[in-house]
Computed example of a mutant assay.
Amino acid sequence: MYMYFNGEFIRQEEASISPFDHGYLYGLGVFETLRTYKGHPFLLEQHLDRLNSGLRQLQIARQFKYAEVLEWIQKLSELNALPDSYIRFNVSAGPGQIGIQTTAYESPTVIIFQKELPVFKPLREKEIIFLKLTRNTPEMDTRLKSHHFMNNVIAKREVGADPNKEGIFLTEKGFLAEGVTSNLFWIEDNVLHTPAVETGILKGITREFILGLAVKVGLSVKEGFYQKEDLIKAEEVFLTNSIQEIVPVQNCEEHIFSGKNGTYTKQLYHLYHQIVDLHVSTK
């Protein structure tokens, strides 16, 4: 498998980074995960906007343009013969001296990984459980998609390896937050609800995209601070992320939801894929 590494396309087994990289030493770095459909990365511009914002906040002196990243991803897709794939675009601070650095990082390590997508059945359902581990507070004013991933790792261990289960974080104050690797939505009385970004969740790219689609299927949208009870009484519940798209929730503990048969969940899923098909056909 090939990867993009600091301006070159190399075999993954040939890659190496400096032990002095502050991404390794101090977790200074950000990343994006996205899907390609027939070689075209979906919502790439939005992912790059978030990535570039994170780099500025971490004082990593690199900004990425849509055209250059598109070219890299399309080249990788050709080399690996993977038109439909999982992409991870990873930027760490790069090498520095041992010790906390206050000046900007001028030589970041830039890596794009690509791998095959697992086989996802359309609208496959999941069970959600409430985590005992609370969501940690963001390191900055808003949560970055950063290398500080310990909270998610420990949460995943709490859930276990079952791919059909997702853990839901609560904040320290008991408000609904997000999944281990997903954003959370539910529908009640023609209103699409989701926890507010102010709870400390990641402002997901697919989350924002779904909020934009909601009005097109006749839903109003409400972001806020919610309790478990608000979710449990919902008619439809689903999760989103850039790789799995829209994932219906079948149950939470003894509470049963509409799952893949949810009226609005199905509409959003089909509209999502109509836009993906349109995106691919116009490229």
Rank of each mutant, 00 (worst) to 15 (best):
V249Y: 02
G167D: 09
K132Q: 15
I154H: 01
T206W: 10
V217K: 06
F209D: 06
L43S: 01
L34H: 02
P248F: 00
I201S: 02
I256K: 10
E14I: 07
D141L: 13
L117G: 00
I275W: 01
E223F: 11
L58S: 07
F130D: 03
Y26N: 02
V215K: 11
L43I: 07
K126W: 01
H255G: 08
K38Q: 15
N164W: 12
Q114Y: 09
Y272R: 06
M3L: 13
N6G: 05
G218Y: 08
G23S: 01
S146F: 09
T36N: 10
E166Q: 03
K75H: 14
A81S: 15
F175S: 09
F5M: 07
A15K: 11
F257D: 09
L219F: 06
M140L: 14
F31K: 00
L76Y: 08
S258L: 11
G174V: 08
T103L: 10
H22F: 12
T134A: 15
A93G: 00
K266V: 01
S107D: 14
T199N: 03
K75R: 13
E127W: 03
Q74T: 13
V119S: 14
L184N: 07
L192N: 07
A155S: 06
Y105R: 04
I112F: 11
G29R: 02
V215A: 12
K65A: 14
N52W: 10
V280L: 10
N151W: 03
L239F: 13
I243S: 09
P122E: 10
K266G: 03
E13W: 04
H147P: 00
G259V: 07
W72S: 04
S92F: 02
G23I: 10
I17Q: 12
L48T: 10
A67D: 15
Q57M: 00
N261P: 01
E13G: 13
F113W: 12
E8F: 12
G27C: 05
F89H: 06
H22K: 04
W72E: 05
L144G: 15
F31V: 07
G204I: 11
N152L: 12
L211M: 08
G224T: 09
H273K: 06
L184G: 03
E106S: 15
K115F: 07
V276S: 05
K233C: 09
E198F: 06
K145N: 07
E236M: 02
W186R: 00
F20N: 06
I98W: 15
D230W: 07
L176W: 05
Y264R: 02
H40G: 10
V119P: 05
S18G: 10
E188G: 05
D277C: 04
K145T: 04
I87W: 05
L271P: 02
N151K: 13
G174N: 11
F120Y: 06
E188T: 03
R50I: 06
H279C: 05
R11E: 15
L51W: 08
P108Y: 04
I201G: 04
F209E: 05
